[in-house]
Deep mutational scan, measured.
Amino acid sequence: MDSLVVLVLCLSCLLLLSLWRQSSGRGKLPPGPTPLPVIGNILQIGIKDISKSLTNLSKVYGPVFTLYFGLKPIVVLHGYEAVKEALIDLGEEFSGRGIFPLAERANRGFGIVFSNGKKWKEIRRFSLMTLRNFGMGKRSIEDRVQEEARCLVEELRKTKASPCDPTFILGCAPCNVICSIIFHKRFDYKDQQFLNLMEKLNENIKILSSPWIQICNNFSPIIDYFPGTHNKLLKNVAFMKSYILEKVKEHQESMDMNNPQDFIDCFLMKMEKEKHNQPSEFTIESLENTAVDLFGAGTETTSTTLRYALLLLLKHPEVTAKVQEEIERVIGRNRSPCMQDRSHMPYTDAVVHEVQRYIDLLPTSLPHAVTCDIKFRNYLIPKGTTILISLTSVLHDNKEFPNPEMFDPHHFLDEGGNFKKSKYFMPFSAGKRICVGEALAGMELFLFLTSILQNFNLKSLVDPKNLDTTPVVNGFASVPPFYQLCFIPV
């Protein structure tokens, strides 16, 4: 009986604490739906499609509103004006990374994606500088992407125009580009180590996009005490870190300090320079996690976009025909596509942009946080508050993009057929937390897609009208449904 009384008292205290925290903070924060004790607004949000729920709530509470995930307040920004004001106009104040408990377990605050403060700034600055020195957006990395595009075309030829699921092959190409940047090595598509790495990356994007992960991140005790797919994700990350550590040891034994070959060499050189400046942010643990982040951000996002792009091109054969006509006119058949071609191919450029806009790969991006107490639109948001960005509300804005739910390359073309930029184009987020590999991803999408369409016609196994382009999961990332196609050599 005594234990029951204690339990009831504990629960009562928890409920009172929950109510007090919510009521004391709500006077400062933007308005929002009334949260339930302990669980907050979790029942009012469709976990399978958070973005749709945010759109519905914005119609009631406006472009800036507050939700509670458990006891934790989260300020939501919906629509271009609110997102721009926060991420661009007040970029420094909104540059923090929001709480992501599962990532905390995986990387302990290291790396480039989930770190904060001085650690994040130094690692991000170093990573950007190193990638630029190796030619991100310049010639040397373009050579690597072109080489991988040629290998991709050869792998597709091996399908002999038979029906195939493109998931694996389209994942190999961007993964190999990242391998060449980090390890100075590309792998054969049949290499077992490479296959294991690909498998872990593919599993992780599916797990991260599941409703279960949303629950884990908002009720963090689940991570330590409950079984579930989150444990598989943590094991996959541990596998990748151990693999990278092996490569780091190989580099330490063979590195030429006067001739760095890749990202690992550059990081080890930085560690050597910083060894007298303790404590340094440049450690082996930081290198492991930064490399894992580059793999995660640079492989599955690009391969998922490529997979979605081919599905949309199957669905819209008239678009595919126009792209192939432009390829034939500008590039021809006797040389590989290059980035200089893009400025002469406005329709193809528009298609690449429209694919990214339409699929809305990361509907709410990753959570941000404010780095200080900030007054925002007459609300006071306390330091450390998590900020949720609705990228969907920007990419699918119906004023900027008429009929935003329709796939239409003319969203990025003017009346004369010239490519038209849009400030609403934010597939990689915006501001200080914009994806480090934005330029690389854009290069890969253009070169891989043009190389495929230069060499193959795409054949659907069903009537294009019957192809479903609805994402199968739409949590962290929008993942396309399973499909097969035939690559018919031109």
Rank of each mutant, 00 (worst) to 15 (best):
V6C: 12
V6K: 15
L9E: 14
L9K: 13
L9C: 12
C10Q: 07
L11C: 15
L11F: 13
L14S: 14
L17R: 11
L17E: 13
R21L: 12
S23G: 13
R26H: 13
L29P: 03
P30R: 01
G32C: 03
T34C: 11
I39H: 02
G40V: 02
Q44N: 10
I47V: 13
I50M: 13
I50Q: 11
L54K: 03
N56G: 12
N56S: 13
N56K: 13
V60S: 12
V60D: 12
Y61F: 07
Y61G: 02
P63S: 13
V64T: 07
L67H: 03
L67C: 10
L67K: 02
F69R: 06
K72Y: 08
P73N: 03
P73R: 05
I74H: 07
H78L: 07
H78C: 15
G79Y: 02
V83H: 05
V83G: 04
K84P: 03
E85G: 07
E85R: 04
A86N: 05
L87H: 05
L90W: 13
E92H: 11
E93R: 05
S95L: 05
R97C: 04
G98S: 15
I99C: 15
F100T: 15
F100A: 15
A103F: 15
E104L: 10
R105N: 12
R105G: 07
R108G: 15
R108N: 15
G109I: 05
F110V: 10
G111D: 06
I112V: 09
I112N: 07
I112Q: 08
I112W: 08
G117S: 11
G117L: 05
G117N: 12
G117R: 08
K119I: 05
K119F: 03
W120C: 09
K121I: 07
R124L: 03
R124E: 07
R124N: 05
R124Q: 07
R124I: 03
R125P: 06
F126H: 11
S127L: 09
S127Q: 06
L128C: 11
L131D: 03
R132H: 12
N133I: 07
F134V: 15
M136G: 12
M136R: 08
M136K: 09
K138G: 13
K138C: 13
K138T: 14
K138M: 14
K138H: 10
R139H: 11
R139S: 10
R139I: 12
E142T: 03
E142N: 02
D143A: 14
D143Q: 15
R144D: 04
E148G: 01
C151N: 11
L152I: 05
L152S: 01
E154G: 08
K158G: 08
A161G: 15
S162T: 12
P163Y: 06
D165Y: 01
P166C: 02
P166Q: 01
F168P: 05
F168Y: 08
I169G: 01
A173Y: 00
C175K: 02
V177Q: 00
I182Q: 00
I182P: 00
D188C: 05
D188R: 04
D188Q: 06
K190L: 06
D191L: 01
D191S: 04
Q192T: 12
Q193C: 10
F194N: 01
F194L: 12
L195F: 04
L195T: 08
L197C: 01
M198S: 03
L201S: 01
L201P: 02
E203Y: 05
L208M: 15
W212S: 07
I213N: 15
I215G: 05
C216Q: 12
N217P: 12
S220R: 14
I223R: 11
D224C: 09
Y225M: 11
F226Q: 05
F226M: 12
T229L: 14
T229D: 15
H230K: 14
L233P: 06
L233I: 12
L233Y: 05
K235I: 03
K235G: 08
K235R: 13
N236W: 02
V237I: 08
V237E: 07
V237D: 09
V237C: 05
F239L: 08
K241I: 02
I244S: 03
K247M: 08
K247G: 04
V248F: 06
E250V: 06
Q252L: 08
M255D: 06
M255V: 12
M255I: 14
M255A: 10
M255P: 09
M257A: 14
M257T: 15
M257I: 14
M257D: 14
N259I: 07
N259A: 15
D262H: 03
F263E: 02
I264R: 01
D265W: 04
K273C: 08
K273L: 10
Q278C: 12
P279H: 15
S280R: 08
T283F: 06
T283R: 06
L287F: 08
L287Y: 02
E288D: 05
E288I: 15
E288V: 15
A291D: 01
V292L: 14
D293T: 05
L294C: 03
F295A: 04
G296R: 03
G296A: 14
G298M: 00
T299Y: 09
T301M: 01
T302E: 02
T302Q: 05
S303Y: 01
S303W: 04
S303A: 11
T304E: 05
T305S: 11
T305G: 03
T305F: 04
L306H: 00
R307A: 03
R307C: 02
Y308F: 09
L311A: 03
K315T: 08
H316Y: 11
H316R: 06
E318L: 09
A321Y: 11
A321V: 12
I327Q: 02
I327M: 05
E328L: 14
V330P: 00
V330T: 12
V330E: 15
I331H: 01
I331Q: 04
P337L: 05
Q340V: 12
D341M: 08
D341E: 03
S343A: 15
P346A: 09
P346V: 06
D349H: 15
A350P: 01
V351R: 02
E354S: 01
V355S: 04
D360V: 09
D360Q: 10
L362K: 05
L362F: 07
T364V: 13
S365C: 15
L366V: 15
P367D: 06
P367G: 10
H368E: 01
T371E: 13
T371M: 07
C372K: 15
C372I: 06
D373R: 03
D373T: 05
I374L: 15
N378Q: 10
N378F: 01
Y379E: 03
I381P: 00
K383D: 04
T385K: 03
T385I: 04
T385R: 02
T386V: 09
L388Q: 03
L388D: 01
I389N: 04
S390F: 04
H396R: 12
K399N: 13
F401E: 02
F401W: 09
P402F: 08
N403Y: 08
M406F: 10
M406R: 14
M406E: 13
M406H: 15
D408F: 02
D408N: 10
P409Y: 01
H410P: 02
H410T: 14
F412V: 00
F419C: 06
S422N: 11
K423Y: 07
F425M: 09
P427E: 02
K432P: 08
R433S: 01
C435N: 00
C435R: 00
V436M: 15
G437D: 00
G437L: 04
L440I: 09
F446Q: 01
F448P: 00
L449R: 00
T450S: 10
T450R: 01
S451F: 11
S451G: 08
I452T: 01
L453G: 01
N455T: 10
L458I: 13
K459T: 07
S460Q: 03
S460P: 13
L461M: 14
L461E: 15
V462F: 05
D463L: 06
D463F: 02
D463I: 04
K465F: 04
D468V: 11
D468T: 10
T469E: 10
T469Y: 05
T470R: 13
T470A: 13
P471K: 06
V472P: 07
G475S: 08
V479Q: 15
Y483P: 04
Q484A: 05
L485G: 01
L485V: 14
F487A: 01
F487Y: 01
I488E: 15
P489R: 02
P489G: 02
V490Y: 09
V490N: 12
V490F: 08
